[in-house]
């Protein structure tokens, strides 16, 4: 009797242990699978860096880094003496057009954000905010088409009478600004909305007006988020390809005059790499060098943004 009950108890315990170990085996298998999925994003980064670096190193085996970083002529597709690999014109095109864009997008985006966060009625905000987000996600090819077929011929030539060429940096830059305005407005508005109400009420209690509250209390309090919004906008403009490819022209330039043609790093890559470009040539390698430069620029901006946010963030409550 006694012996029987011990064996059955033992059997039950053995069953339990077996069930638990089968269960925990399944549990750790699942955890392992999920971890593998997470590793894929690390693998992506590694693949990007490795492919870019590989070709970049091979490129610098043939072209001196000095000629690349300090050269003022970018003509990699020509041959013989005409060929030159100075990246400065591409960097200039990228930053100059981004600058034109930000000249439009920063005031427009920030003023729109201040309006939505501090002045607009809840109803207005609830309708405008989703529209902003929709616009921020519009395909950039449509913006490029707009720049080419409307901004250049109608706005710049007919309305303002500026003698721009068919492909020009001004139209591309302005439309770049239009593209990033909704992004800046939306992200900066989020930052300002997260400033606690008590700060506003305190300022009102001390006799401040609405404008003073918006500009001297809410704006500084949300500064870290606002700077992050601006960097995000700049980074989108720097990486934007098709608008400049379509409307900005395809010849690099270091001119200050925005009515001529420009090329950016991203638009050079898209103009040159079309799938049919022969592998292993210097021409093929230029795509990777320029891609690596662009990658580093955006990585740097992202690092600055993270630093700014973590350093100046105000934590409430």
């Amino acid at each position: 009797m006694n012996a029987v009950s011990t064996t059955s108890a033992e059997r039950v315990r053995a069953d339990l242990v077996r069930a638990r170990s089968a269960r925990s085996a399944r549990e750790s298998l699942i955890k392992g699978l999920l971890f593998l999925a997470a590793l894929l994003s690390v693998a992506t980064t590694t693949a990007i860096v490795v492919t870019l670096l590989q070709q970049t190193i091979s490129f610098f085996g043939e072209v001196s880094p000095l000629a690349y970083f300090a050269g003022t002529k970018w003509t990699p597709l020509l041959s013989g003496d005409q060929q030159s690999f100075g990246v400065l014109p591409l960097l200039w095109g990228t930053f100059y057009l981004t600058g034109i864009g930000l000249l439009v997008a920063v005031p427009c985006g920030l003023l729109a954000a201040i309006y939505l966060a501090e002045f607009a009625k809840p109803k207005v905000r609830k309708t405008v905010k989703p529209i902003l987000e929709l616009l921020a996600g519009m395909p950039t090819i449509i913006f490029g088409y707009f720049a080419l077929t409307f901004v250049t011929p109608v706005i710049l030539r007919d309305v303002f009478g500026i003698p721009v060429s068919e492909f020009n940096g001004l139209a591309a830059g302005l439309v770049l600004g239009l593209l990033v305005t909704p992004t800046i407005a939306s992200v900066a508005e989020d930052a300002m909305r997260s400033v606690p109400q008590s700060l506003r009420e305190g300022a009102y209690g001390l006799g401040a007006g609405r404008l003073q509250v918006a500009l001297r209390v809410v704006f500084p309090a949300a500064l870290s988020g606002i700077v992050a919004a601006l960097i995000l906008g700049a980074s989108r403009a720097i990486g934007e390809t098709v608008i400049i490819l379509i409307a900005g022209g395809q010849s690099p330039s270091m001119s200050l005059n925005p009515t001529g043609s420009f090329q950016s790093m991203a638009s050079f890559i898209a103009a040159t790499a079309r799938g049919d470009i022969p592998q292993g040539t210097l021409k093929y390698e230029t795509i990777f060098v320029v891609g690596f430069t662009l990658f580093c620029v955006t990585l740097l901006l992202n690092a600055v943004s993270t630093r700014v946010v973590s350093r100046y963030r105000q934590v409430y409550e």
């Binding site: 994003s41 690390v42 990007i48 492919t51 870019l52 720097i238 990486g239 991203a266 662009l294 993270t306």
Partner: peptide
């Protein structure tokens, strides 16, 4: 992994094109 995903989100789309090509 977290930092990596944040950085990947900021990489321009044309660079993904290069990755896809190569």
């Amino acid at each position: 992994i977290e930092v990596n995903i944040q950085n990947l989100a900021a990489v321009p789309s044309v660079v993904y094109g290069i990755l896809g090509l190569a």
